[in-house]
């Protein structure tokens, strides 16, 4: 492999990491509150708003059931509005974020619902407001599960980021398509796949370790 190609792979890896990092950060910022809302707004729950809950749930499901590649194309006007362009790394962040928000929201919802209802009752008995229950009980208790959820989200986003390469999104996927596929360079294709595998492995290991550290339900001495 020529030094130019190695340079290209290194740049593409950085592009992928950048896209995934920014998209994950924004999606987490929006997805966590959305997930908490989904977990607490059902009938008879802390912020009982069953109608809004159902509508939000529908939107989340609709976004999640749209194939990512179609989502990327479908929201091009929106992407232009936000990023000023529809190609390149910057533009790819928009559909990645849009796809990640409902994904993270559902994962966070599950994590929050797993929190023992007895803790909610105890907090209510102490005179906690619904907001205090979320801040002091539900979120801290769900943190280990949320850490695992975010790991899963990042891994999925690495995969998605490769897919935006197909529509000129930049990053490893873009490199694999243009050099590996269109120019018949199997060694580049193989290198891209290996880098992706290493990235996913790394993220999973970091996530697992973090979740284990955060989980105080396990004894560790």
């Amino acid at each position: 492999m020529s030094p130019e190609i190695v340079q290209l792979i290194a740049e593409a890896t950085l592009d992928t990491l950048w896209m995934v990092a920014v998209a994950t950060a924004i999606a987490t910022l929006l997805g966590v509150p959305l997930g908490v809302f989904l977990a607490t707004s059902g009938r008879g729950e802390l912020f009982a708003l069953p109608a809004v809950n159902r509508i939000v749930g529908l939107v989340v499901n609709a976004t999640r059931s749209t194939p990512f590649i179609i989502l990327v194309v479908a929201i091009i006007p929106f992407t232009r509005l936000i990023a000023g362009t529809s190609i390149g790394t910057k533009a790819a962040i928009v559909p990645l974020t849009i796809a990640a928000i409902p994904f993270i929201a559902r994962l966070v919802e599950t994590a929050v619902r797993e929190v023992d209802q007895g803790l909610v009752e105890a907090a209510r008995a102490m005179g906690a407001s619904p907001l205090q229950i979320v801040r002091k009980v539900l979120l801290p208790e769900a943190v280990p599960a949320i850490a695992l959820s975010l790991t899963l989200a990042v891994v999925s986003m690495i995969g998605y980021s490769a897919m935006v390469g197909a529509v000129g999104g930049g990053g490893l996927g873009d490199l694999g398509i243009r050099y590996g596929y269109q120019r018949f360079m199997p060694d580049v294709m193989a290198a891209v796949v290996i880098v992706l595998i290493v990235l996913v492995q790394g993220v999973q290991t970091i996530g697992d370790t973090l979740a284990r550290r955060l989980n105080k339900r396990l004894r560790h001495n």
């Binding site: 023992d116 007895g118 803790l119 009752e121 105890a122 209510r124 008995a125 102490m126 005179g127 009980v137 801290p140 208790e141 943190v143 105080k216 339900r217």
Partner: peptide, 18 residues
């Protein structure tokens, strides 16, 4: 008023994160 009423539970209901 609940702040002037303490309560203890069968399954303790302690926060595992604290």
């Amino acid at each position: 008023v609940r702040r002037s009423i303490g309560m203890i539970f069968q399954h303790f209901n302690l926060l595992s994160s604290r």
